[in-house]
Write a protein that binds this DNA or RNA. Structure first.
Lengths: 191, 191
DNA sequence: CGGTCTCTTGACGGAGTTCAAAGCTAGTGG
DNA sequence: CCACTAGCTTTGAACTCCGTCAAGAGACCG
């Protein structure tokens, strides 16, 4: 039983036939640390499930600086939604932070699965909903929180990721400089 | 023919029967400037369509400051998604910026409509998708853009709103102080 | 016409950024 | 298994820009 099957059993009520059908259309892929799965400008052709490892989705600003939109650890999904939905050039990059194993579904295949398996459809809905909640919160903290508050919220909401990420990526995720981040962490230690 | 019908005709291919059915379950409501449609802590019971006017969705920070998540002008929808989906206390407030007219659908009714009218369902999906794209962009600019860039992007993406909003609300939307906003605007004039 | 709401402006202080350099760590190859 | 290197993290100094406070001028509404 692979990671994906474990995931489905834990989060859905799909029967074995459906699971097999879903699994049979997936393309497995191994990624090395720092390898790209999607470059901005390319078209995001696949829905991506992370079986093992850790990916990041990030955009590049005019000055070359990178800002991270999302971390995707094992047992999560990722893609450039806009590019995937409309099959148009992507705004964002997706790359592996750790050596990773992923499953890929070409959009046409996944659309077929959604159309034929109602409970997969409703599960996908839930994931989308959660995505929207999280985006709302993220926007609000990005607007209103101080760097220290942002960091607190991050370690509170993703303590597991904290240990696996280089600090400069956390900074790129929170929208603060790495300098500020180390300052905050020093202040924490002194308490 | 009311505003809502105009909207549906422009953006969907629903037939007259479906439109009537949808319309018949809507509760019309008039809002005065500054009137609240939802207070944080309450449950968001309705899906909201704005026929006329302008609403805002905002959160309140610990220090009492307000930050705006979304502006909803005529011919758009709004709600606290998380509260609506799960019928749990809302994180955000929704209030009228201008005197407004809205249509409300109780969740149970709207769910029924979605279940029985497939093309409404798919239209709703599109709206959700667009919402997600926009959130992604908003997060990225919140993280990476300078106040001036944020303002530029705003007047570029919502020139129509610019004239209708008090500056302090634009500031609350961009996550900058009103002082900085006026400073930027002065600089613009001098060019 | 009075009052409230909104916008502008000045002075000041401070938090965060940039730049640069140095220490540390972990991974790699010999 | 060790040495080396590249990447990561910390730190210092200087500066810039944004926020807070406070006051005053308009504009709009009742």
């Amino acid at each position: 039983m692979d990671e994906f099957e474990l995931y489905l059993r834990a989060h859905t009520h799909l029967d074995n036939g459906d699971m097999d059908q879903i699994r049979s259309l997936a393309i497995p892929k191994t990624l090395r640390r720092n390898e790209f799965l999607l470059h901005e400008g390319e078209i995001c052709r696949y829905k991506i499930f992370i079986s093992k490892g850790l990916l990041r989705t990030f955009g590049t600003a005019a000055d070359g600086s990178e800002h991270i939109l999302q971390f995707a650890p094992e047992h999560s999904w990722t893609l450039d939604v806009e590019s995937y939905d409309r099959q148009q050039p992507a705004r964002y990059n997706i790359a592996a932070i750790e050596n990773s194993e992923v499953l890929l579904w070409p959009k046409a295949d996944f659309d077929k699965l959604l159309a034929t398996i109602p409970s997969l459809q409703s599960f996908a809905q839930q994931l989308i909903s959660r995505n929207i909640y999280n985006s709302g919160r993220r926007i609000l903290t990005a607007l209103s929180a101080t760097p220290e508050e942002k960091y607190q919220e991050f370690i509170h909401s993703s303590p597991d990721l904290l240990a696996r990420l280089p600090l400069h990526m956390i900074a790129a995720y929170l929208g603060i400089s790495i300098k500020t981040l180390t300052r905050i962490r020093q202040a924490q230690l002194r308490r």
